[in-house]
Simulated scan of single mutants.
Amino acid sequence: METNAPWSLAVAWDWMEECARSADATVRGADSCVPPVAEELVLAARASALSQWYPFTSHNYLRFEDSPAFWTPGTQPNVHELTGSISFDTGGPEGRPSFRVWSGLLLRKPDPVLVLATPNAAEAVDALVGLLTAHGVESRP
């Protein structure tokens, strides 16, 4: 891949899978509020309608944009983030992993609204797809 060429969607998802595997390996067996479930979440998202969007993580949230993030080489300045995300942590019962689906944008006003908390990554992904569809986010051609 050329240094200044924009990332393809497939490359962005491949990179996200690699980063998630690495992040999980880092926290596996550690005393951390971040459980080793990033890869599980990314794989579930990639197998869904979310695969049409560019993924990125921030603060243990899986988020999506309509083009490669501004920090990737050759990107356009008008990147739009989708108004929904999935967070993951050990906030479930007895410290088990929990996925939380949020409506809204992280760290922006108005504050995001919690839509669902579940221990199941695929269920969280399905809920986010439904949320985005309900908010009029169109599928990409």
Rank of each mutant, 00 (worst) to 15 (best):
M1W: 09
T3Q: 10
N4H: 07
N4Y: 03
A5K: 12
A5T: 02
L9P: 12
A10M: 00
W13I: 04
D14E: 12
M16I: 01
E18M: 09
R21I: 00
A25N: 13
V27S: 11
G29P: 02
S32W: 08
C33I: 13
C33K: 08
C33P: 07
R46M: 00
R46T: 00
S48G: 07
A49I: 08
A49N: 06
L50R: 00
W53V: 01
Y54E: 11
P55A: 01
L62W: 15
F64I: 06
E65Y: 12
S67E: 10
T72E: 14
Q76E: 12
P77Q: 08
L82V: 10
I86C: 09
T90W: 09
G92P: 04
R96Y: 05
F99E: 11
R100H: 09
R100I: 08
W102H: 11
G104W: 01
L105Y: 12
R108Y: 03
P110F: 00
P110D: 05
D111I: 07
L114F: 06
V115W: 00
A117M: 11
T118S: 14
A122N: 11
A124V: 07
A124E: 07
D126E: 15
D126G: 14
G130T: 08
L131T: 09
L132N: 08
H135Y: 12
V137M: 10
E138I: 04
S139R: 12
P141G: 14
